[in-house]
């Protein structure tokens, strides 16, 4: 009996450790896998020149990723500019002003928003954002556009990243001890002054981290952006023109990638690029959050 119990215990320990090790090794395994697949391309052209070159002619063996990186950066920037202020203020409202009852109503809503599949956001983009841009917004600026453009991608992304950033920010603001707010109020600050000078100021590392993680999230988002951004391979500074972000490149071309030499390698390199950038951002900013929470 005793031996059986111990044997079960031992077997089980192996199972547990193996599981945990698999999960933790996952990014490394993915990274190595993608790297091996991109070796044929990297042997032929250095990573640096791949990233900076803007000539994309796969059939002639020219792989310049810059237009895609540019597209990704552009939509991500628009998304950040639109979502960041909303997140900060919403988080302030939910942690500083709202009563418990209101917070209890809000949290499921934030969760549902965060849980909606990205294809649904894409449908929303096509139904609402795209026509809104082409019919109402573009005429104001005197441009004509189909609506499938960088701006549409940015707007859809901003809506998607709000619940994600907001959740982190709420956690960050909640770590500010109430005693500090009491101190500030007792010194004669109004509640807004306390929030501005004390709560937000003390949370700056956390808020920056939330921003960083939101940016990383937006940078890797695929389907929703791809559905509204136009997928036009041409660098344009005009947000009413179409763009072609990096994830969309991978998703759009998987069908033909095996028929053109090195094309599959190029797409796997794009995925590797996404993985490395996003993982780095995550590691740095999560660390910052983790540090501030310990304090």
């Amino acid at each position: 009996m005793i031996f059986r119990r111990i044997a079960v215990d031992k077997t089980n320990n192996v199972w547990m450790v193996a599981s945990l090790a698999t999960i933790l090794a996952l990014p490394l395994i993915i990274g190595i896998g993608l790297y091996i697949k991109s070796i044929p391309l990297l042997e032929y052209q250095s990573a640096g020149s791949l990233v900076t070159s803007s000539e994309w002619l796969p059939s002639q063996g020219k792989f310049g990723f810059w237009p895609f990186i540019y597209g990704s950066l552009y939509v991500t920037m628009i998304s950040f500019l639109l979502s960041a202020p909303v997140c900060v203020f919403a988080a302030i409202y939910l942690t500083q002003y709202a009563s418990k009852r209101i917070v209890n109503i809000f949290m499921p809503i934030v969760d549902i928003l965060a849980g909606l599949p990205s294809v649904i956001y894409g449908v929303f983009g096509i139904l609402v954002v795209v026509p809104f841009i082409s019919k109402y917004l573009a005429p104001i600026f005197d441009v004509s556009t189909s609506g499938y453009c960088i701006l549409a991608g940015g707007i859809v992304l901003s809506i998607m990243s709000i619940p994600y950033m907001l959740n982190i920010m709420i956690e960050v603001f909640n770590t500010v001890p109430i005693g500090i707010k009491e101190a500030s109020l007792s010194l004669g600050a109004t509640s807004w002054e306390s929030i501005k000078h004390v709560v937000v100021k003390r949370s700056i590392p956390g808020v920056i981290s939330a921003f960083g993680l939101g940016i990383a999230k937006a940078f890797g988002e695929t389907i929703a952006v791809m559905m509204v951004v136009g997928n036009v391979l041409k660098i344009s500074h005009n947000p009413f023109k179409g763009g072609y972000p990096l994830p969309a490149l991978i998703a759009n071309n998987y069908g033909e990638m095996l028929s053109i030499p090195k094309y599959d390698s190029a797409l796997m390199f794009a995925a590797l690029l996404l993985l490395v950038v996003i993982l780095l951002i995550n590691i740095v900013f999560r660390y910052l959050i983790y540090k501030t929470q310990i304090k």
């Binding site: 500090i180 009491e182 101190a183 010194l187």
Partner: peptide, 12 residues
């Protein structure tokens, strides 16, 4: 009124 709490809550 000046307030002194159980723990020193410093402003950041």
């Amino acid at each position: 009124m000046g307030l002194l709490s159980q723990r020193p809550y410093l402003l950041p």
